Amino acid sequence: MNESEISQYITETFEGVDVMIASGDSFFFYNPDGNVPPDHRFMFATIVTSDINDQFSDLNRPSVFRLNIGISKQTFRSLFGERALPSDKNSTPKSDDTSSSDYDFTALNQVMPHPVYGRMYWTCILNPSDEMFKTTVQTLLAEAYNMAVSKYRRLAARS
């Protein structure tokens, strides 16, 4: 799947989604009535197309993008356990760097922890295939969206 197809899937499948586009990257927020102040919106997925914010995935390759999805701690741990992840968002992992993980963050069509935000239970996948999208990514997106809705409702109930 490409970025446009994924963006279309997210906006057509989930209600109340706002998309902000900056520098070619897409940020998906739950914003049910379109009037939620920016500091109360809950981002649940992003599509990143360049290495501006980190260089782990080598997104400067032609047609390569990374889909990032914020999932629950339980789902994250069921997928990845508690492996160490790189901690410096501005560094590039090196083969002799003992702080880097066992993941090849440049690999296509592989669900893995986000190289920077994995510690916050974000996952990523570069260029998911149609099959991977249907069998795995759709489920992760649904969980992330439902978490954003729950956070919004909890915050709204306190207001």
Results as ranks from 00 to 15, higher is better:
N2P: 05
N2M: 01
E3C: 02
E3Y: 04
E5F: 02
S7F: 08
Q8T: 10
Q8H: 12
Y9V: 00
Y9R: 00
I10S: 08
E12T: 05
T13N: 06
T13E: 15
T13G: 03
E15F: 06
G16Y: 08
D18M: 05
V19R: 06
M20W: 10
M20S: 08
M20A: 14
M20R: 05
M20I: 14
M20C: 04
A22D: 13
D25P: 10
F27E: 09
F29Y: 08
N31V: 09
N31P: 03
N31I: 03
D33S: 14
D33A: 05
G34R: 04
N35Y: 15
R41E: 15
R41D: 06
M43A: 14
M43C: 09
F44P: 06
F44I: 00
A45E: 00
A45C: 08
V48G: 01
T49H: 12
D51Y: 02
N53L: 02
F56T: 05
S57F: 01
D58T: 03
D58Y: 02
L59Y: 05
N60Y: 03
P62W: 14
S63E: 11
R66D: 09
L67I: 01
L67E: 01
N68S: 11
I69K: 02
K73W: 08
Q74V: 14
F76S: 00
F76P: 03
S78H: 11
G81Q: 00
E82S: 13
A84Y: 13
A84V: 14
P86F: 02
P86G: 09
T92Y: 12
K94C: 11
K94E: 15
D96N: 15
D96M: 01
D96W: 07
D96G: 06
D97Q: 00
S99E: 13
S99P: 00
S99H: 09
S101E: 10
D102Q: 11
F105T: 01
F105D: 01
F105G: 06
A107G: 00
A107P: 06
L108E: 15
N109P: 10
V111R: 05
V111C: 13
M112E: 07
P115F: 07
P115M: 12
P115S: 10
V116L: 01
V116C: 02
G118K: 10
R119K: 14
M120W: 03
Y121L: 06
Y121S: 07
W122R: 00
W122A: 01
W122Y: 04
W122F: 12
T123A: 08
T123M: 06
I125T: 08
I125Y: 08
L126R: 06
L126Y: 07
S129P: 05
S129L: 00
S129E: 05
M132S: 15
M132L: 15
K134D: 15
T136A: 15
V137E: 05
V137K: 01
V137P: 00
T139Y: 09
T139F: 04
L140P: 02
L140R: 03
L140T: 11
A144W: 04
Y145G: 08
N146I: 01
N146W: 03
V149N: 12
S150M: 08
K151F: 14
Y152G: 07
Y152M: 04
R153I: 11
R154E: 13
R154V: 11
L155K: 10
A157R: 13
A157K: 14
